[in-house]
């Protein structure tokens, strides 16, 4: 009985259970968010008047564009954080690449026991909470944190350096959070690099720098692209890092959504900003998928 049931309906079950769940709890929320972003804000519970309604008077759809217009009018408050998100995410990606490439190279070229140890060292932060690591970073960067204390004690500085709430603290946080994501694809592409290719280049007269420029770098380019996308996409929407380490100058969209929602209780505007955030990441995401397809063929 069970067996016949499985053979007949197992196929449908395997597909439609996850499709159902993800439609209900991923697609539908996005649609509802779009709905809210076109809704009118009001002082009530919930604090908006839905654009799309099914009520006693039947189905009605009355979108309002106020929220997007508001974002446009107060562009200094909303669009600037958008640009800022892109800027901070971009330079964070560059910094990650700067440190991750040597790290991945070293790991890929090292011998067995050391290689395993280094890989575990890269993976460990990946599994531990980013929130806690950001907290640890605060302890280091604070005006009365470990670094300032040490420098004061050593007599190198007289007054504490302002490191928190600067671009520096944001980049430190991003490095701490996203370095492993950059290292892993780079490592994967570098470790596959055949040593014979490097020897062939050397044999044909290439010096170290030329070997890097003509062989290593071009062949690890897929890893570089994958790593950059893996860092840039989540970094744009980051909340914890700007919230804990950034000041007003380091405002990012993830934090603006939070503030609009929890502080200002302006749900429609929060939803509209979320839509803008999706619009920002959609380009790199589509590119990543396109790259993926290319890689498979």
């Amino acid at each position: 009985m069970m067996r016949i049931f499985f053979q007949k309906y197992g196929f449908l079950l395997v597909i439609w259970l996850p499709v159902g769940w993800l439609s209900l709890f991923f697609m539908l929320p996005l649609i509802e968010m779009i709905n809210v972003s076109f809704s009118e804000a009001r002082r009530a519970v919930p604090p908006y008047n839905p654009a799309f309604q099914i009520g006693e008077k039947g189905i009605s759809f009355q979108p309002v564009f106020d929220n997007y217009l508001l974002i446009y009018d107060y562009w200094g408050d909303y669009l600037w954080p958008a640009v800022n998100s892109i800027r901070l995410a971009f330079f964070s990606t560059v910094w990650c690449l700067f440190f991750a490439y040597p790290m991945a190279w070293w790991i890929a070229r090292s011998k067995k026991p050391l290689q395993h140890i280094l890989l575990v060292l890269v993976l460990m932060p990946f599994w531990t909470s980013s929130l806690l690591r950001m907290y640890a970073l605060i302890g280091l960067l604070n005006p009365n944190g470990v670094i300032n204390d040490f420098l004061l004690w050593a007599g190198i500085i007289v007054t504490p350096i302002q490191m928190m709430q600067t671009d520096f603290s944001i980049y430190s946080g991003m490095l701490l959070t996203y370095l492993p994501l950059m290292i892993l694809p780079l490592y994967a592409s570098l470790v596959r690099l055949d040593n014979a290719l490097l020897e062939a280049a050397a044999d044909l007269g290439a010096k170290n720098w030329e070997i890097f420029r003509t062989i290593i770098l071009p062949l690890s380019l897929p890893g570089v692209i994958a790593g950059c996308l893996l860092v840039f996409i989540p970094a744009v929407g980051e909340f914890v890092i700007p919230a804990l380490l950034g000041g007003p100058e380091q405002l990012m969209l993830g934090k603006v959504i939070w503030t609009e929602f929890f502080r200002n209780r302006d749900w429609p505007v929060a939803a509209a900003i979320a839509i803008i955030l999706i619009a920002i990441i959609i380009l790199p995401v589509v590119y990543a998928r396109y790259q993926d397809k290319e890689g498979l063929s």
Partner: peptide
């Protein structure tokens, strides 16, 4: 110069 066992041609 050396001709490598699996040729080591630069794939790119």
């Amino acid at each position: 110069n050396i001709m490598f066992q699996n040729y080591a041609l630069f794939p790119h």
